[in-house]
């Protein structure tokens, strides 16, 4: 347990990686969005996808924490399990904090009438429907899934290099293409549309959680035999 906590502390030794850079990205993309809103002479609500930026950084972070930090952790005699749990644990905390921050900022956004310029950055239409809880659950699971995609992809690369990534990538693409083909063939697009339309933040988060758990399990099993 102690070593897992120490893995978290190690990941935070350079505060830029997990805290500084995400903060800068958030502030910069928000500032940019605000500038654009104030320049656009449109009266209705103006949406920005800028809140995503930080999430894509989390994907990159997932890749980075494995490619660079995992070999280093091996040099410090950290077991793969402790590295995995510590890294994932730390990121969960970061995701919870970011989610809470997004929630608070979305409240301010609504209260200030879109930061005085009718902009929408955090309280996005469908995501912010209803109470705050569904929104927070949704943001959290999205962040976790993106981080885990990066983490697992990097682990696969670590173990099987380009071949591994290629096989996984082609495999995933084949599944999607096969699914699309099947839906088209069975003329199910109408039902699919209905299904997607009926989803709430919570149900999407639920699906994402399933994906996230699968990704986490896959990452761990892949990491068990990874070599620095």
């Amino acid at each position: 347990m102690n070593r897992i906590v120490n893995v978290m502390r190690m990941q935070l030794i350079n505060r830029w990686t997990f805290i500084g850079i995400p903060a800068v990205i958030l502030v910069a993309s928000f500032g940019l969005s605000w500038l654009i809103w104030s320049l656009v002479p449109y009266e209705g609500a103006k949406y920005s996808g800028g809140s995503q930026a930080i999430m894509w950084y989390f994907l990159a972070l997932g890749i980075q924490s494995l490619t660079m930090t995992f070999p280093f952790s091996q040099g410090l005699s950290i077991s793969r399990k402790a590295f995995f749990l510590g890294t994932l644990g730390l990121f969960s905390i970061i995701a919870v904090v970011t989610t809470a921050l997004y929630y608070v900022l979305s409240l301010i956004e609504v209260a200030t009438d879109g930061w005085g310029v009718n902009g929408r950055f955090f309280a996005l239409e469908w995501i912010a429907e209803g109470s705050g809880l569904p929104m927070m659950v949704f943001y959290f699971t999205v962040m976790m899934v993106l981080f885990l995609i990066g983490f697992w992809a990097a682990t696969i690369y670590k173990r099987w290099q380009t071949t591994g990534l290629l096989v996984t990538g082609i495999g995933a693409a084949l599944i999607v293409v096969g699914l699309v083909f099947y839906i088209t063939r069975a003329e199910l697009w109408g039902q699919v549309g209905q299904f997607l339309g009926s989803q709430s933040q919570l149900s999407v988060a639920g699906w994402l959680a399933v994906v996230g758990v699968a990704l986490a399990g896959g990452s761990y099993l892949t990491l068990r035999r990874a070599v620095p």
């Binding site: 030794i13 660079m68 070999p71 280093f72 620095p228």
Partner: peptide, 28 residues
């Protein structure tokens, strides 16, 4: 926890300085 093996081609996190590396080592 009783072993130390820094390999000749040891990798370090990109954003690390030697100071960061030593602080990490001190943890383990």
């Amino acid at each position: 926890s009783r072993i130390c093996f820094i390999r000749e081609s040891q990798k370090y996190p990109d954003a690390f300085t030697p100071k960061h590396a030593f602080r990490s080592a001190a943890l383990f």
